[in-house]
Design a protein around this nucleic acid. Structure first.
Lengths: 233, 233
DNA sequence: TCAAAAGTGTTCTTGATACACCCATGC
DNA sequence: GCATGGGTGTATCAAGAACACTTTTGA
């Protein structure tokens, strides 16, 4: 280890990694991005994208870097989840991982497995395979956090395309919360927030009556928030 | 660093510490435990108790250990706050700190400065001195977290003696939330939760009418929680 | 004309808030 | 007997929950 300089810590230190729970919304179901490991511990297992933190690198930046390196993703929303550091969680040595969770829009990602990953793929949160390390537990915490957050802050829009219908928004909320919601009450509440701007166009003519498109207005939210506004769905 | 063994990470790694925001309730005001630093960076400054994480040591245990080593405290409640890892936060080198927040009962602590601390003392959250490192920001996040948590989970009792009066409980909540509460509504709601058991004794005769003492019943809470009970103050 | 999703209001119930006086005790 | 904190109930209001039918389009 480094020589003593009076202030330098001279003992062995745990390794430090970041791992990301990336959520996507694929037509009716909440999904998590997993990579198939191509390296030593847990080869062939599915795991969260992540990797070692470099000296001098900010944690959030490290998470973003790993995300783009391992899966070619640029997350629209990224928030820290917490640190996971149980001694046995990595069979090699003591590795402490700072976990993040992220939300990405369906169009904004172009999955590209790289670095030490063999493949990158979306998995429905309901049908996750057995994960490497303690990643299964981390995903569990992330889902909980997402559920709590989506009720009190307008983060859900990061999972939808820029323009979306109210039905799509409701379907998203139902997928995240895991429960059905009343259509009329949902629309009433969402519109009462006055954070969506209706776009005088239409879409989704696919088979039936076209639906009104809306866009979320982040500036308006920022202004309201400053005045002590309390988002709540 | 260590020689390559095929799987061992061979690059320099950031140092890893834990820091604790310990809350106490001292007669009407919410307090935070600070230690006066006796070592190199920020000598003489007030800072959060904390220290380096040992290899093979769990993060929560490290936090508890530092707490007892530096201040002789055994926390009744300890929860992780998050990781703070901005590259410049420690002038020596890149140090990532996993912060915890803790609640202790007034009687359960016997402050004893030790290790690299000169002194340990309680400070009202309203009148904190300038803190070392980014500890001021960490305390800010901890206070926010405590405020949010105390509304939705019965953690506040960890700041009161085993037996307490409803007025004491209300004073505590007012101190944490920073706002006055209606006495009748507060008592109504608290008692409606059915989590307190009245003790047929009395106390606080100091000057006036004695008040009923209560004890929080954690078992009852655990049972209710299992049935999807939703604590809310 | 039928199938499928979009869109729309009202009633009822429940929980939150506001509010003022009497009680028990020590000094 | 007076000062101090302990203790109690009701009326009003607002927000959330339940609930069913009409509209528009493509096939």
């Amino acid at each position: 280890m480094s020589g003593k300089k009076g202030f330098t810590y001279e003992y062995a230190r745990p390794a430090l990694t970041v791992d990301c729970v990336v959520f996507g919304f694929g037509g009716g179901e909440l999904e998590v991005l997993l990579i198939e490991r191509g390296l030593d511990p847990y080869v062939g297992w599915w795991a969260l994208p992540g990797g070692f933190v470099r000296v001098g690198e900010d944690l959030g930046e490290a998470a973003g870097r790993e995300l783009s390196e391992e899966a070619g993703i640029d997350a629209g929303y990224l928030e820290q989840l917490g640190a996971f550091g149980a001694p046995g969680r990595d069979p090699r040595e003591h590795v402490v991982s700072v976990a993040y969770w992220a939300l990405v829009r369906p169009g904004d990602y172009r999955l590209a497995a790289a670095t030490d990953a063999v493949a990158a793929r979306w998995h429905g949160v309901g049908e996750l395979p057995r994960l490497a390390f303690d990643h299964g537990a981390i995903v569990g915490v992330a889902v909980e956090r997402l559920r709590a957050r989506v009720r009190h802050q307008p983060v859900g829009f990061n999972l939808l395309p820029e323009k979306f219908t109210l039905t799509e928004l409701q379907t998203l909320y139902e997928a995240i919360l895991g429960e059905g919601l009343d259509k009329r009450n949902f629309r009433k509440r969402v519109l009462a927030l006055d954070l969506l701007t209706a776009l005088p166009e239409e879409r989704r003519e696919g088979a039936h009556r076209p639906a009104q498109l809306f866009r979320f207005d982040p500036d308006k939210y920022a202004r309201l928030e400053r005045r002590g506004f309390h988002f709540e769905l």
